[in-house]
Computed example of a mutant assay.
Amino acid sequence: MTEDETPKVRTLDPHSLRGLAHPLRMRLLSVLRHDGPATASGLAEKLGESSGATSYHLRQLAAHGFVEDDPERGKGRERWWKASAHGTRFDDTLLSNPDPAVRGAADLFIHEIATTHTQEVATWLGTMDDWPEEWRRSADLSDFTLRLTAAQACELRDKLHELIESYRNLAPAPGTEGVAQVRLHTHAFPRTTG
């Protein structure tokens, strides 16, 4: 993505959700988005899967428009894949869709996202000593509890998203030293007290 390019985000609908809501497909798409184009065999090695499984699920992702061939790579029979969009937007109405298969896919999708976030935090905790002190100080595992209305919670979420997106255009030029991919997770949800 170039400096001035707006990230392409795909909003899930019932059909595309059912094509994506599979643990391996979600992991494949995540790796392609974060690490760039790859072959089925390269992804298989990275994820500890068979190349037959990664090939099959990449074709399923392609059929639903989540990945596509990368024509700039590959020679001969070697097929390289890349993500078709930079992100995915989940529409909460999918959780209340009248079709039980869509509701089940929505439930699986959001639980896989939560699992991925947990794994990413655990990986950071296990590898943070490998990073320079400046990066260890920049990390954050904070939590806050606020008393808000649903409308205020939506406003806060939207402002957080706007702030995070404003940093996209501040990305240093390619090749700049000291730059790393930084993952940000936001979780906001009501809880029962008492």
Rank of each mutant, 00 (worst) to 15 (best):
H64P: 09
H117M: 14
L29F: 01
D70R: 02
R59V: 08
M26K: 02
W80G: 00
D129N: 13
L12A: 06
E45N: 10
L43Q: 00
L32S: 01
P14G: 04
G36I: 06
G65I: 01
A85R: 08
D13W: 11
G36T: 03
H86D: 11
L47W: 01
L17P: 03
D35S: 05
R27E: 05
E133L: 15
G42V: 01
P100W: 05
L125M: 08
G104S: 13
F66P: 03
P23L: 06
T88G: 11
R27W: 01
L32A: 02
A85W: 08
T115Q: 10
D129W: 08
L20C: 07
E133W: 10
G42E: 02
G48N: 06
L47H: 02
P132D: 05
E49P: 02
V67S: 04
G74R: 08
A83N: 02
L47K: 01
L95Y: 01
E49L: 01
E134V: 06
G74E: 04
G52Q: 13
L28S: 04
M128V: 09
E72M: 11
P71R: 03
S55R: 06
K8P: 13
A63Q: 09
D69V: 15
H111S: 15
L32V: 04
M128P: 05
E72K: 07
N97I: 09
H15L: 14
S55W: 08
F90Q: 06
T116S: 12
V9T: 11
T93E: 13
L43K: 00
L108F: 01
G126M: 06
T115F: 13
R25Y: 03
F90E: 13
K75G: 12
F109C: 13
E133G: 09
D70I: 05
G104L: 10
A122G: 11
L108A: 10
P23G: 07
T39C: 02
D35A: 03
D13S: 12
T11Q: 14
D91Y: 02
A21L: 06
Q60E: 15
E134A: 15
A40H: 04
A85I: 11
L29D: 00
R18F: 07
D99W: 08
K82L: 09
A105S: 08
G87V: 07
D35T: 05
I113F: 04
G48A: 06
H57K: 10
T11C: 10
L20K: 01
L12R: 01
S96T: 15
M26A: 09
Y56M: 11
D13M: 08
A85V: 15
A106Q: 00
G48P: 02
G48K: 05
G19M: 04
V9S: 04
